[in-house]
Design a protein around this nucleic acid. Structure first.
Lengths: 269, 269
DNA sequence: GCCATAAAAGTTGTCTGACAAATTTTTGCC
DNA sequence: GGCAAAAATTTGTCAGACAACTTTTATGGC
């Protein structure tokens, strides 16, 4: 009686797909999402026992195999733990495990937020890279820089090299976690990097502008000037956000631009 | 002939668990890990077709259900895509989707690397918080600060409030992605925050030292002084890393400490 | 009555077989 | 050769079964 089979009718085994009720991107995916929401919303408290697989299968009107597939994902994500013979339970710390962004290409305010997070990390990475870069690191950056320069001259697509350049900087921190996180964020911007390198980007000078910023950033890192590297990275990321139309309230980066070159306040006083 | 069933013998259905060959944390988990490694190592190229479920089941010597559970995780992680009737294929962009740290409590060099990533983000977050904090944000920080102060005086465990304080700062950036990422990283340090707040921490003054750093950080954010906030956060995180024994080569933070208060180099010249 | 041991029930882990639904390949016709 | 129908493939789901393990209950001895 209390069951609310919101995903499929128990009567007809198949052919209940896409009835307009659920998200319907696969039964196990839907059920996994439903269970995840119950856990995150607290309906299933941390540490508490989950219903049995059979109970869940009955509630959702699916077979046990589907429930197991859904739970397999939750287990991999560290949301639930299971012991043979004992049952399943919500993990004590449902947060930890993985950091995810909203699926799909971000847009609008979300894009702006992710851009800001990226700016935070990459300005710091640039600073670290300036301190720790080896000749090999510099060579990797330089190669990507040259390739981008060629792309600017030829009117080609330099997005790939753009990516390589930024990841080379991250690699120069010699911190694998930073490198991996920069790579992760970078993957979110494959779409957003287009306006810089497409035909309009070349025509309006966006590509050339980006290249100039890259060269300034490279020079600072090569010189080992951490402060200049931070400033160059901040400027570049601010401009990159602007080129993509995602920098309405990025006051952080504006300020950083003003911090670097001179210390007016002190000189005044 | 070419099959190399590395996980279970095809002959005996059950009772082939824990033979010392594989990791053996569950069959589907093992196979999922094996497939993930093949994808990330390039053995299965991006965009290429995967073997069929039956072929994989035969190769690993398990049933199709186990393969499906393993693949369910990979699909959720965005590593593979499947279409009914067509088959499974490696995703074009295997990186995107989620950012994960190594499972379990990090230690040693890995802890130091994660700490540095955290420092990058939280110093930036402190700077943004100083610019954007509302009275409500400040109130939340102050409450956590007060609670920690009480814990210091009473010799109690202030780790929880420590967490709340840092997350309040992240929330004051008014950037949900930054807040979520700080929260994510914070969860990795539940274990590592102990040395500050246990009996030894109180006795040796580590708790009091942390509290002093927190107060300095709060004051800077309350005053809206972004540079001071960054510097205070950097100092605090450097000291926190040192308290945990994870700051051998964190040259970044040392440098930041030296950047803030005065500009000696300029004054000299 | 109480405790230790054995039996029973319940739960996850895995296997097998089957069918539906969708796609790809082959076949047959013109 | 081109095109449409049929066959073969492949994923998605269901159903039942058994093994391995844990928890609970029942039983027997004292």
């Amino acid at each position: 009686m209390a069951a609310s089979p919101s995903l499929a009718s128990t009567a007809a085994p198949g052919s209940a797909r896409g009835r307009g009720v659920g998200p319907s991107a696969g039964l196990s995916a839907d059920i996994g999402a439903a269970l995840e929401q119950r856990i995150r919303s607290g309906a299933y408290a941390p540490g508490a026992r989950l219903p049995t697989e059979m109970a869940l299968a009955a509630e959702f009107g699916v077979s046990r195999a589907v429930v197991r597939e859904a739970v397999a994902r939750l287990k991999a994500d560290g949301l639930v733990a299971s012991r043979q013979g004992s049952g399943m339970s919500v993990a004590a710390r449902p947060d930890s495990g993985s950091f995810k962004l909203a699926p799909g290409t971000p847009a609008g305010e979300a894009l702006s937020h992710i851009f800001e997070l990226r700016a935070l990390v990459e300005t710091g990475a640039a600073e670290l890279a300036a301190r720790r870069r080896t000749p090999a690191d510099l060579a990797a950056m330089y190669a990507a820089l040259q390739a981008m320069g060629e792309a600017v001259r030829q009117g080609d697509d330099g997005a790939e090299d753009d990516d390589v350049f930024h990841q080379a900087i991250a690699a120069a921190t010699h911190n694998p976690e930073i490198r991996r996180f920069v790579s992760f964020l970078s993957a979110q911007f494959s779409e957003s990097r287009r306006p810089t390198w497409d035909a309009a980007g070349h025509a309006t000078g966006r590509a050339a502008a980006a290249q100039a910023e890259h060269e300034r950033l490279y020079a600072a890192i090569a010189a080992g000037d951490a402060a200049a590297a931070r400033q160059a990275a901040a400027g570049h990321l601010y401009q990159a956000a602007a080129r993509v139309g995602a920098a309405p309230q990025a006051t952080c980066l504006e300020a950083k631009l003003a911090v670097g070159p001179a210390h007016e306040e002190n000189d005044h006083g």
